[in-house]
Design a protein around this nucleic acid. Structure first.
Lengths: 114, 114
DNA sequence: ATTACATGCATAATTTTCTTATGTATATAA
DNA sequence: TTATATACATAAGAAAATTATGCATGTAAT
């Protein structure tokens, strides 16, 4: 498996963005979605995911609904108003960082061509 | 200043890549180069840089030469053979990670257009 | 039967990798 | 004499992961 190590700092943004697109999701579903979108190359570990979700909820960016599905408990997360605002700034921040990274690492790269 | 926090995990790659392009550099020069390339948006702190340089040297990827310039000590770093090999794999890893990130965050993004 | 794997949550110990603060030293500009 | 720039370095602390563990249900394989 490739290096998940670089995910540091971007996990919150990933969670918020997926929830912007999907209305509501539960934890396990998020791990599967990321795995699917990256052809298995990025695997979100539970030890990283659940504390991150709890923190986002504590910060008032997410709310939860617990549901019983097939004798299993699911905790659905969705964006709050604050969470919806935060997605945009977090996304801009991360995309800006990636552009700067390309400027450092790809001297010939032109951001206009993306 | 924008968020440097996202740099976690990519500093080593940045150092190695800059040294691939520049033959040899000293620590302070690296901080200035990154600042210049990113229009002041990314600032490498000494507390992050020097330990990273020492680790890369300890891992055998960098060698050093100390020089006296204008009554000041400079410690020049350059890539070893192992370091030259490592640049490629570290770059591939980071670019791969960024592509996966785009797949998650930019569902419409097409890697072929970069 | 029992082992493995998938679904689904959670937390604790540890490690990695930063930030922030501090220290040393020289030189120049305000 | 204070601030800023150049140049190195380390230590304390925080953030954000990994790894390991635990609980619980259900299904497929041996």
């Amino acid at each position: 498996m490739s290096n998940n190590n670089l995910i540091k700092g971007s996990l919150q943004t990933i969670i918020l963005k997926l929830l912007e697109e999907n209305e509501r999701m539960y934890g396990y579903e998020i791990t599967q979605k990321v795995k699917e979108l990256t052809a298995g190359e990025i695997k979100i570990t539970e030890g990283a995911l659940y504390p991150a979700l709890h923190k986002l909820e504590a910060d008032g960016l997410l709310t939860t609904e617990i549901e019983q599905v097939d004798n299993r408990v699911r905790k659905y997360y969705s964006l709050t108003k604050d969470g919806q605002k935060e997605v945009n700034s977090k996304m801009a921040e991360l995309q800006g960082f990636v552009e700067n990274l390309q400027r450092i690492l790809n001297p010939t790269w032109n951001p206009g061509l993306t």
